[in-house]
Every structure is written in C-alpha cells, then in structure tokens.
Amino acid sequence: MTTNVLILCTHNSARSVLSEGMLNHWAAKLGKDVRAHSAGSAPSGRINPFAIEALANAGIDASGYRSKSWDEFVGEGAPEMRVVITVCDSAAAEACPYWPGSPVKVHWGYPDPSNAAEAQKAAAFELTRQAIGYRMLQLLQLPLGTMSNAELQQALVDISRS
C-alpha cells in the first residue's frame, strides 16, 4: 500500500515543491512505494522558477507541478496521508484542517531561499534542495509499512534533529 506524504508550506511555491520533487525522485530511484504531494494554506498560484531550476539541475522534471491548496487533500477522493510535514514556520503555526486517517505530523523547518539576495538565490535554492533531499532519504530508510504511528512520529522528530 502506498505511503502518502503531504508537505505543506504557506504558499506552495518553493520549499514544499522542492520536498515533493525530492521525495518522489528518491522513492522512484529506491523502489519505495511512497508518494509525495505538496500544498499550501494560501497558495501563490505559481512555482518559484528557482525551485524548478534546482529540481531540473538534479535531473527532476517538475513541469507538471503546480501551486495548490491543502483543501485538495481533505475532500472526498483525496489520497489518505500517512505523514504531514510542514517545511516553513508560518505553516507550522497555522491551524491545519482535519486530515482523514489522522496522519503523523512533524515540522522540518528550512529557511526560505526566496529571501536570499538576488545574486545568491540559485545557490540558496540548491542548498535547500540538498538539505531536503538528505532528510527525504532518511525518511525512505524507515520501515514505513511496519511502524506504529508513535514509532513513526519519533523517527520523524529524530530526522528533524539531523
């Protein structure tokens, strides 16, 4: 059974998109039945071009990605999430909707690469992509199919400290 992971950031334009791309990329490479989704509480309606560039430079096609609302993941027919990860502090502080299935929730904060000086933006996005990719690889090493929610919660908190 597919393990669905929802990654949230307020605008769903940079960090959450990088996370979705990296988790899906590594899951496919490692043959793991994990599917990442991303969304935002107040989606910007566009993906930051530096996020697309960072993913493309890593060999990940993000052409089908779009900025979307977390509302898409609470309605009928939405995939049931096992894990919800917030990647920006403002999303972590927001009151999230009720997620069907009571997924495990964790905050993995990353500084916003969009705030870097213009000349440093590409490097900031690349460093953020690498940091996210490292944590996603750690997530994929977990025995997701056999872990209880309490065990998974602790493992995800431990990853947040690395």
Rank of each mutant, 00 (worst) to 15 (best):
M1A: 09
V5D: 03
R15P: 15
S16T: 15
V17N: 09
V17Y: 03
G21T: 13
G21R: 06
M22G: 06
H25M: 10
H25I: 15
H25N: 12
W26S: 12
A27M: 08
A28S: 07
D33H: 11
A36F: 05
R46S: 15
R46F: 06
I47D: 07
P49I: 05
P49N: 09
A54W: 08
L55I: 11
A62F: 05
K68G: 01
W70R: 02
V74L: 04
V74R: 13
G75T: 13
P79S: 12
M81K: 02
M81Q: 02
M81T: 05
R82W: 01
V83R: 00
I85V: 09
V87D: 15
D89W: 04
A91N: 02
E94H: 03
Y98I: 04
Y98R: 07
G101P: 08
S102E: 01
S102C: 02
S102P: 01
V106I: 05
V106Q: 04
W108Y: 15
Y110E: 15
Y110L: 07
S114V: 11
N115K: 14
E118F: 14
A122H: 11
A123G: 15
E126P: 03
E126R: 13
Y134Q: 07
L137D: 03
L137T: 02
Q138T: 12
L140K: 10
L140V: 02
G145V: 04
T146P: 00
M147F: 01
M147Y: 00
N149H: 01
N149L: 00
A150N: 01
Q153L: 05
I159W: 15
S160A: 08
